[in-house]
Design a protein around this nucleic acid. Structure first.
Lengths: 130, 130
DNA sequence: CCTAAACCTTACCATGGTAGTAAGGTCAAG
DNA sequence: CTTGACCTTACTACCATGGTAAGGTTTAGG
């Protein structure tokens, strides 16, 4: 399979497949005589794994670890679970931060009449007058 | 005031003040004979406004609009409120997405024993076996 | 008055993950 | 054999921020 086919079958763009190879997330693949990268079904499987992990918000570093564990038939599931729970914690922290921002902005918006007059507690808040 | 003093007083780094000037968020300021940027208290006020808006997650484009409205004494508060509510909507969307990811990862983690054995529904999920 | 420290200037590079472009080589179908 | 679809590498850009380096300026102390 050439890179375009793999891209279509895995949902990872050819661009990103080359990038993942460059950065060591996936190994260098074999080449045809003319220099084309050649892939097989196992590569498609791996790239799908990577795409799903990306979709779940795992960073490249974490995905690298997950891939290593995935390919190690003797891994203890403890290690995988630790990575997942760590990710959940980070997501929780991100969520909490966004909710906090959201509430502040929403509160300020609630104070503002939103009419033709210039008085605006939102701008007052941003300018430090509250 | 030199840029360092303004940075200390506003909470915006000298680096970012120059960047904001480059990108047109704030106007070019006057210079001393030797080329140093010179600021006054009003500039500190403006930069504090910008920092607070950044802290609330507003994008640079939105902040540019907020600054314009802030400096327009006759703006209708309606326009400001619209920007704020729009930002709340975007934050809500971001939060919903993160919560969705969080729940998927957390669910997979809950299925995994997390012990010395290699069986791991997290990896199975990522590899598409679920 | 001289020197050293603290400050300023511009112009680079890096981040992370992705997309775009350009210039050129290869392959397959008609 | 031509044409179009595909591949290659190498570059740029995004966004907001931080870092560095090489050099000029100002200020305070001896």
């Amino acid at each position: 399979m050439n890179i375009g086919t793999v891209a279509d079958n895995s949902g990872v763009s050819a661009k990103m497949i080359r990038y993942y190879e460059d950065t060591g997330l996936i190994p260098h693949t074999r080449r045809s005589d003319s220099g084309y990268r050649k892939y097989d079904q196992a590569d498609v499987h791996t790239l799908r794994f990577i795409r799903r992990a990306r979709d779940l918000g795992f960073s490249m570093d974490r995905i690298k670890e997950l891939l290593r564990l995935w390919q190690d038939r003797t891994r203890p599931s403890r290690e995988v679970k630790a990575i997942a729970l760590n990710h959940v914690s980070e997501l929780d922290a991100d969520i909490a931060k966004l909710i906090s921002l959201r509430n502040v902005v929403s509160h300020l918006a609630g104070l503002c009449h939103g009419d033709d007059h210039p008085e605006c507690p939102i701008l007052d808040g941003l300018s430090g007058e509250i």
